[in-house]
Amino acid sequence: MGTFFDSFPSPDPLPPPRPLLPWQGPAELTFGGFVPLRAVLVDTESVLVVVDRLLAHPTGLEFTVLVARRHASDDLADPLDWGQHRGNGGLDPPAEVLRLGIAYVDGRKASSLARPPHWEEENPKDPVLVMRSGHGSRGRWEKQYWLWPLPPEGPTGFVVHWPAEGVDEWRVDVDGAAIHAAADQALALGDG
């Protein structure tokens, strides 16, 4: 081996990654309390949209959205990912995008169409709904969302609107008290 590269000092290690802000996801090593609820948002001849696997944390709510076409499909475009339909993230979402929203009992709302806050914003003004992970193709998708903050007690609305599927705006209320009861069962193993 030569000597050129060995003559440079090793750089300092990077600082550890910063923990997530509360609106970005659950705190590390915390496990949400299970909310025994399931909300069927869309159930048509062609497609099914279900909110399931709700896990409540003191700081917010995790849930999974399942989208399934009832018939064989070669549709590869994720209906929950605006960017896959139109690259310019334009101001008008196309009809193929499934709009998902949460209506808090106090009138506040969170929407999948809203632009997320700046990454370093510590206290966003409005509730935030972020997609954290997920997978799928060919007519079946599973997406995990994080909703911040935890909705207050009272009916909490899951709202859907999917123009391309002929689904007009539709709201299904779930029991906020059940969400709060589950949040009390959340388990924190981390420092915080």
């Binding site: 101001l91 929203g101 209506a103 709302k109 929407s111 169409l113 809203a114 609107h161 705006e169």
Partner: peptide
């Protein structure tokens, strides 16, 4: 006004 009819966000810089 529908749930999703919020004013269009301004484009990010």
């Amino acid at each position: 006004m529908g749930f999703f009819d919020a004013p269009a966000p301004s484009p990010p810089p």
